[in-house]
């Protein structure tokens, strides 16, 4: 762990087991789709229930049930539009339909699950976060009816920009935050399929101890190198490998990318340092400076 807090959208949470683990915060670009999905779901629910009630009313006796249907529709509209989020977040562990679809979850700032009161506060205050309202006619559509209002959500956006945990006002008041809760549960470790890697790794001196920061750098490099072109890989790796070439007494023209990858292999994957790697067709080649006059396949074939 670095001493200074990383400039990132993660937040550390200390559990009762005294473990600090990181959550990744959800920003406006994940939360807006979640909100829109919830908005759609709310209206689908309201309209669906009203249609079902009307059909039932038709089957029985519309003249008697009609007013009850209308009253129930009003109350349903009230309950769903104000308490949809509260109820779902309380009963489904901090998730609404939209949050489930976009892979985010509400938790409180200490990392505990959200309680009913907190869910109530943050969902009631959404109205304030969606302010100010803009009429369509202000936004350029001249012929739109003036009553058609669109929430601009500027207040919530500003609040998210200026708070450490990307909280809107409702989150601030309730003491909650929205985190990314994705389900990418592959256990990732980079595979090494290049035979030259094991060959080069066998020449790395046994007394070379890899420091923690070096190990971390190597692992990050091995993860990311697939996204870089070969020339770019060499350029990036060169900064670390030039002093290492001197240290290992390797030839100057050993491919920096290959050397980084071999170090990674030696650190994380190789069974043990005593075991001699199966060099196959590469046996006999050497990257060492003193063997410079012998033919080698390591650097020429890249």
């Amino acid at each position: 762990m670095s001493s200074a807090a990383a400039l990132d959208t993660t937040i550390a949470v200390v559990t009762p087991e005294n473990i600090a683990f990181n959550y990744q915060l959800a920003g406006p670009f994940r939360r807006l789709p979640a909100y829109l999905i919830d908005f759609a779901v709310r209206w689908v629910v309201i309209i669906g229930v009203v249609i079902v009630m009307l059909l039932l009313g038709l089957m029985i006796d519309i003249s008697f049930l009609g007013p009850f249907v209308v009253a129930a529709a009003f109350i349903l509209n009230f309950a769903v539009s104000w308490f949809y989020g509260t109820i779902l977040e309380t009963y489904y562990n901090g998730r609404t339909v939209g949050k489930w679809a976009t892979g985010i979850r509400v938790i409180d700032v200490e990392g505990h699950p959200i309680s009913g009161t907190r869910a109530l506060i943050r969902n009631l205050l959404r109205v304030a976060d969606l302010a100010p309202m803009a009429a369509l006619s202000q936004l350029g559509a001249e012929d739109a009816p003036p009553a058609f209002l669109i929430p601009t959500a500027m207040i919530g956006l500003l609040s998210m920009i200026f708070t450490r945990r990307m909280q809107r006002l409702g989150d601030l008041a309730a003491g909650t935050m929205v985190i990314i809760d994705e389900r990418s549960w592959r256990l990732p470790i980079a595979k090494v399929d290049d035979p030259r890697v094991a060959a080069l790794a066998s020449f790395i001196p046994g007394d070379y101890r890899i420091s923690r920061s070096m190990a971390r750098t190597l692992a990050i490099y091995a993860e990311r190198r697939h996204y870089l072109t070969p020339a770019r890989r060499r350029e990036v790796a060169k900064h670390l490998t030039i002093p290492l070439l001197d240290r290992f007494e390797f030839r100057k023209d050993v491919d920096p990318d290959l050397l980084m990858y071999s170090l990674y292999y030696k650190t994380f994957l190789a069974e043990s340092s005593t075991e001699i790697a199966d060099l196959g067709p590469l046996a006999g080649y050497s990257p060492l400076q003193r063997d410079v006059n012998k033919p080698t396949g390591l650097s020429d074939t890249i």
Partner: peptide
Amino acid sequence: HNQLYRAT
């Protein structure tokens, strides 16, 4: 953690 400590 989210499953062990659930919403009240």
